[in-house]
Design a protein around this nucleic acid. Sequence first.
DNA 1: GTTGCTTATCGTATATTTACGATATATACA
DNA 2: TGTATATATCGTAAATATACGATAAGCAAC
Lengths: 116, 116
Amino acid sequence: MAFASNREFPKKDIQLASLFKALSHPGRIAILKVLAKKDSCICGELVADLPLAQSTVSQHLKVLKDAHLIKGEVDGPRSCYCLNRTTIKQLEGLFKPLAADLLNPTKKGDPGKDCC
Amino acid sequence: MAFASNREFPKKDIQLASLFKALSHPGRIAILKVLAKKDSCICGELVADLPLAQSTVSQHLKVLKDAHLIKGEVDGPRSCYCLNRTTIKQLEGLFKPLAADLLNPTKKGDPGKDCC
DNA sequence: GTTGCTTATCGTATATTTACGATATATACA
DNA sequence: TGTATATATCGTAAATATACGATAAGCAAC
């Protein structure tokens, strides 16, 4: 029954939540950082860089790929991954207004005063 | 064995990942938005506003509270919740450099050219 | 004290996540 | 063709997450 009522929430929030979910593991953040730094598209290197088994890294890569945060391509006997900066920009575009919304001190009320 | 190797990752990434995890459900995003709008600290209202059972909302509130994204206080027979903008600012402070890092076109390489 | 209201917690069922080893697949090279 | 290498997928186990109804706990009002 999990997530059954997702349909009731705004589409943008569902999208943002699922991007957050894809980013909700430090290993996946680490993967993105490595890809950002190298720009080239390793995979074995990722396994070497992370304290995780090869199959686990592959699973994390799949999560990131499913979220469109990275792109992947077969390159000979190996796999080539890289950032999908389009989606990352999209994430930024969804995050910023949320943060602004949450940090705005509620127009009329006591300005910025958290109630408890 | 899940998450056993968390210790191997940078502390900041673990913190950011766990904030993302707390935000990885549209219902929880919805809760934060309601709290931002009302500034006052409802709880029954949250239940009324969300397509979820009271106990489920309470669970989500606990997740948000454990992540320090909201604060809660007992107020007579009811519970009073509000945003913890300190943590939200912290989240912003962790997110921004990550996004910048990921969007930066890798100093020397072809500028901004994703490899695949 | 009892009643009524609100919210947290318990119990439970199901689904998802995380991790690993083992295996399959696919390419390159001898 | 066979062999080596790299990566995805399978199988599996354990932990978490999600959702709900039911119950407990807390306070207010009478």
